[in-house]
């Protein structure tokens, strides 16, 4: 029953979020600000994780394919497909759920317990729309860039690690990443990243917006935002994979 209660409340919040904005110019400015806060400020962590992710995938693949019957370019191919299909969209989304999700929930939670959201309502401003809509647009717009960046950096990290430990040569690695490349995999990954961005921003905003109490509750909302966003991302990963790849 509690699940349905939350689901209903979440849908009603979204209805309020997607109401007609009071003044488009103010929302535009806010969206630009959110692109910086949620998107550009995440470049560093995504880049760092992608390098190591690519490196580990390559070394693990090399370790598991130490068989003379298997071609060496398989390492590059496996690294490419793992990064493109799963890591750069889903793992990056899970990392964003941690970084951006907790940021959104704690920001809105603090605003709620310090009556800043009430202040917006009293001014006659649709607080849900003003605070949440720019975050949704900003992350849905920027997440594909982060995913593309993660793909490139991940593949580069794989090459750097693979060649430096002598697991694969540059020639074989490049041959592997070019071998039977399916461009649709990139599209599939980008579609997932947009959906995941929507999940992260809305689920985290839901938890932050309805925070009641004090500092303790803000912390709890932040944790719930990360956990619930991650679970929903994994669920939708399964659904989208079935829908887009089968």
């Amino acid at each position: 029953m509690t699940l349905f209660h939350h689901l209903g409340k979440y849908v009603l919040l979204l209805k309020k979020v997607f109401a007609k904005p009071e003044k488009a110019r103010v929302y535009y400015k806010q969206t630009i600000r959110e692109i910086e806060t949620l998107g550009i400020n995440s470049i560093g962590i995504i880049a760092m994780i992608s390098v190591f992710m690519g490196a580990v995938i390559t070394i693990q693949t090399a370790y598991n394919t130490e068989n003379p019957l298997l071609p060496t370019y398989l390492i590059g191919l496996a690294a490419r497909d793992s990064i493109l299909l799963e890591f750069s969209s889903t793992i990056v989304a899970l990392i964003l759920a941690g970084k951006v999700g907790s940021n959104i929930a704690s920001e809105l939670g603090t605003m709620s317990v310090t009556e800043q959201i009430d202040a917006l309502e009293i001014m006659g401003i649709n607080s849900a729309s003003y605070l949440i809509l720019p975050k949704i647009i900003a992350l849905m717009f920027f997440a594909p860039f982060l995913t593309l960046m993660s793909m490139i950096i991940g593949i580069f990290g794989g090459w750097a690690a693979g060649t430096s430990v002598g697991a694969v040569t540059t020639t074989y690695y490049i041959h592997g990443i070019q071998y039977e490349f399916i461009p649709y995999y990139v599209t599939y990954s980008l579609i997932k990243s947009v959906v995941f961005a929507f999940i992260i921003t809305t689920v985290s905003s839901y938890h932050g917006y309805f925070t009641k109490g004090g500092a303790l509750e803000v912390g709890r909302s932040s944790t719930k935002a990360v956990v619930h966003s991650s679970v929903v991302i994994l669920l939708f990963n399964l659904i989208l994979t079935q829908l887009l790849l089968s």
Binding site: D118, E121, I122, M123, G124
Partner: peptide, 9 residues
């Protein structure tokens, strides 16, 4: 929302 624009709090 309209009437709240006349509010100050």
């Amino acid at each position: 929302k309209k009437i709240r624009r006349k509010f100050g709090m």
